[in-house]
Computed example of a mutant assay.
Amino acid sequence: MEQPAGFWVRLGANILDGIIMGIILAFLAFLIYGDVSRVGETSPLDLLSFLYGLLLPVFWRGYVIGKKLMGVRIVQKTGEDVTIINMLLRLVVGGLVYALSLGIGLIVSAFMVGMREDKRAIHDFIAGTQVVHAEEG
C-alpha cells in the first residue's frame, strides 16, 4: 500500500503547477495576443490548461509537473494508474461540486486531506482516486 500524500505536499504541488502553467500560458498569450494581460480572460488557452490537468496524468502515470517535482502522483484507489474517466470525474464533477457549494466543498476537502487517515478529498471520492507518494526508484 502506497503512503497517502498529505495536505502540505499536495498544496505545494498545486502551487508549483499554478506557477508553471501561469508562466507557460503567459508566454503563449504573448505569442498569440502580443501581451500577457489576456491570461485572466476566457480564451482558447483555458482549454489547454484543462487538457493539461486531464490528459497528462493519464499519459504520465498520474503525474503533472508539480506533482512530479513534489514526488507524489494520482492513482486509482486500487493503486492502478488513472484513466481518462477517473480524471474527468475528478476535474469536471469534482469542480462542479466545489462550484455549486460556493467553495464550501473545497474547504471541507482541505480538512479531509489534512485530517483523514487516507488523505482523500471529495474529488478523490468522486473519481475513485487518491494522491500518494511516488515509489522510490
Rank of each mutant, 00 (worst) to 15 (best):
V36A: 14
V36F: 12
V36Y: 03
S37Y: 14
S37V: 14
S37C: 05
S37D: 14
R38T: 15
R38N: 12
R38Y: 11
R38P: 02
R38D: 08
R38L: 14
R38F: 11
V39I: 15
V39S: 11
V39Y: 10
V39L: 12
G40Q: 09
G40Y: 08
G40N: 09
G40H: 05
G40P: 11
G40E: 10
E41A: 09
E41H: 10
E41S: 13
E41F: 05
E41C: 06
E41D: 15
E41W: 04
T42W: 04
S43A: 04
S43G: 13
S43N: 14
S43M: 04
P44D: 02
P44W: 12
P44E: 03
P44Y: 10
P44C: 02
L45T: 07
L45P: 13
L45G: 07
L45W: 03
L45S: 06
D46T: 10
D46Y: 07
D46L: 06
L47T: 15
L47R: 03
L47Q: 07
L47P: 05
L48D: 06
L48F: 13
L48P: 11
L48Q: 00
L48V: 15
S49N: 15
S49A: 11
S49M: 09
F50A: 10
F50T: 09
F50G: 02
F50Q: 01
F50P: 03
F50N: 02
L51E: 06
L51A: 13
L51N: 07
L51M: 11
L51Y: 05
Y52M: 08
Y52Q: 10
Y52L: 07
Y52C: 04
Y52I: 09
Y52K: 13
Y52D: 06
G53D: 04
G53C: 05
G53F: 15
G53I: 06
G53S: 10
G53Q: 06
L54V: 06
L54C: 07
L54H: 01
L54T: 07
L54I: 02
L54G: 01
L55V: 14
L55Q: 08
L55C: 15
L56D: 02
L56G: 03
L56N: 02
L56S: 01
P57T: 00
P57G: 07
V58F: 11
V58D: 11
F59H: 01
F59N: 03
W60Q: 05
W60T: 01
W60V: 02
W60L: 02
G62K: 10
G62F: 04
G62S: 08
G62M: 05
G62V: 00
G62N: 09
G62A: 05
Y63E: 03
Y63P: 00
Y63L: 01
Y63H: 15
Y63Q: 10
Y63R: 11
Y63A: 04
V64D: 08
V64M: 12
V64Y: 01
I65S: 03
I65T: 10
I65Q: 00
I65M: 12
I65L: 15
K67N: 10
K67L: 04
K67I: 01
K67P: 02
K68G: 02
K68L: 12
L69M: 12
L69G: 00
L69H: 01
L69S: 00
M70Y: 07
M70D: 12
G71S: 11
G71T: 08
G71L: 11
G71D: 05
